[in-house]
């Protein structure tokens, strides 16, 4: 995550506000896996009074905040290979158990980033498909295939202004029809059986503007 990846729009929610908005949709008691980048920030903003257990697929349920500098154990890390802590009540386990939690449908919510999301909820977030790219997938395909609810946090458009919400993904897929809800800098959008549906707008944004920045038809029924 770099500062250079700032919003493509000068209006709408910033990265922190996107994480804050997504955090509102994490219910009390949820078991949650957060992807690397903006999704990781969601944990900081879950409203007080909700008890949420964070899973990291390398083998820890009950992941806590990063340790103080110089504290930590190089063998206590998250899926992004950065040092973390374990909360009281945490558990360690091996990879097959960890991915049984994911693939067996035991994790409630996973929040991921995206390169593209299609109108039927297909997700592309692991490869550009370019010939010289070193392909690397990690746990992304397992997460989208197994976790009950997949949330996406992403800028609405790429740095060059192309829509990331599209009719069909041009990048290689991570999974088909897997996304439930998308949090962008402009809006909150649900994937429904009829297509992408506008749920909420960032302050100062109107539905026409969101539609203009979206590569497929947006259902805006109910909006003035």
């Amino acid at each position: 995550m770099t500062v250079g990846e700032s919003s493509t729009a000068s209006v709408g929610w910033n990265r922190e506000q996107m994480a804050r908005r997504a955090a509102l949709d994490i219910p009390d008691g949820a078991y949650v896996n957060l992807g690397i980048g903006i999704p990781e920030q969601v944990a900081q903003y879950v409203p007080e009074g909700r008890e949420v257990i964070y899973h990291t697929e390398n083998g820890l349920l009950g992941m806590g905040v990063p340790p103080d500098v110089g504290e930590g154990d190089p063998e206590l890390i998250n899926a992004g290979k950065r040092p973390v802590t374990a909360i009281p009540g945490a558990a360690y386990f091996h990879h097959a158990d960890s991915f049984s939690m994911i693939r067996g449908g035991h994790i409630d919510i996973c929040v991921l980033g995206a390169m593209q999301v299609s109108q039927n909820g297909d997700l592309a977030n692991w490869s550009t498909g370019l010939a010289d790219a070193i392909p690397a997938v990690g746990g992304a395909m397992d997460l989208v295939a197994g976790v009950k609810t997949i949330y996406i946090i992403t800028q609405h458009c790429t740095k060059t202004g192309d829509p990331k919400l599209v009719k069909s993904c041009s990048y290689p897929l991570t999974g088909k029809a897997v996304v439930s809800r998308i949090f962008t800098d402009l809006a909150v959008i649900d994937v429904t059986s009829e297509g992408l549906k506008l749920v909420e707008l960032a302050p100062g944004i109107d539905p026409d503007y969101v539609q203009q920045k979206t590569g497929c038809e947006l259902i805006v029924a109910g909006w003035q």
Binding site: F99, R103, D132, I134, V137, G138, D142, G146
Partner: peptide, 18 residues
């Protein structure tokens, strides 16, 4: 890998574990 001097079988992490 770019020089074609090593083979790669890419496997999703959970599939690899299973």
């Amino acid at each position: 890998y770019r020089r074609g001097e090593i083979e790669l079988e890419l496997v999703p992490q959970g599939t690899l574990a299973e």
